[in-house]
């Protein structure tokens, strides 16, 4: 009885999560469909052709170059901070950790309006690197928290062992800590990457007219006076597939073996 109810709940959850995704794929790969039947009347690539002609390529390039840069830069600033806060006894550690979450609490529209006036004055509206920076506002807290948790789980005597054996602080970080925090770094990267990929509001406010990332491009087909589900769904496919692929890679290659060994014994 219990087993049946558990599997029933699982099925319902899977349906709730995957039904919208399923519908997206139906819309994307249909040539003729009015949305009134369960399956499209005729399958085809019409929507894809339409969005490619409208400039999908440029958006794809923008989205998939901005996201890796966001990951890279947020990792670069998160690792040293996470090392200090995660491994050293610092006063008001919890307070600092919470301060790092503020960017997630402030609504993007609020920070967006503030940044808009600054960027206008500085002439940074529509600037590529300025958008990377703006995406880092939301991506860095995820990266930091994830990397910091990894640092925290490592037995401090491992660092001491490396030091007495002759490693400088920098070499200790490179040779000992970095390999050990890799799982945290990767999961932080996934969060940061998908944050950047999905970021819409700030990019819309500050990126136009040059920076049309996938979500902004998609908005053309759902915003304003009409909704065009076919092309919008076709663009969505490019947002969903990479995310699913990354989650699959994470599950397959990053087991908790590194973390499990990291200073739990003894």
């Amino acid at each position: 009885m219990k087993r049946i109810s558990t599997s029933l709940v699982s099925i319902i959850i899977v349906l709730i999560i995957f039904f919208p995704v399923f519908v997206i794929f139906e819309w994307a790969f249909s040539t003729i469909w009015y949305g009134t039947s369960l399956f499209p009347t005729q399958l085809g690539f019409r929507s894809f052709v339409q969005v490619i002609q409208a400039g999908l390529g440029k958006s794809l390039i923008l989205s998939f170059t901005i996201a890796p840069l966001v990951v890279l830069f947020s990792a670069i600033i998160s690792i040293p901070a996470a090392y200090i806060i995660g491994t050293k006894d610092i006063k008001s550690k919890r307070l600092i950790e919470n301060l790092f979450l503020i960017p997630l609490i402030v609504p993007p529209i609020v920070s967006g309006i503030g940044i808009l006036s600054i960027y206008t004055q500085l002439g940074l509206i529509g600037n590529y690197m300025a958008i990377v920076l703006v995406h880092m506002i939301g991506a860095t807290p995820y990266m930091f928290r994830s990397v910091e948790a990894s640092f925290e789980s490592i037995d401090p005597s491992i660092e001491e062992a490396a030091r007495v054996l002759g490693a400088t602080r920098l070499r200790t970080i490179l040779k000992i800590y970095l390999p050990l925090v890799t799982p945290g770094l990767l999961s932080g990267s996934v969060f940061a990457f998908s944050w950047s990929l999905n970021e819409f509001l700030l990019t819309l406010l500050l990126g136009l007219p040059n920076i049309v990332t996938l979500p902004v491009f998609l908005y053309r087909y759902v915003g304003g006076y009409y909704i065009s589900p076919g092309p919008a769904s076709a663009i969505s496919v490019f947002l969903i597939v990479p995310s699913l692929f990354i989650v699959y890679l994470m599950e397959k290659y990053i087991k908790s073996e590194y973390v499990a060994g990291a200073g739990i014994k003894g």
Partner: peptide
């Protein structure tokens, strides 16, 4: 700093490098 003292240490909880 510890790395310049030319001494080494054996730890209570072994502190081996897990990776």
């Amino acid at each position: 700093p510890p790395e310049r003292r030319n001494l080494t240490m054996v730890f209570q909880n072994f502190a081996l490098f897990p990776h």
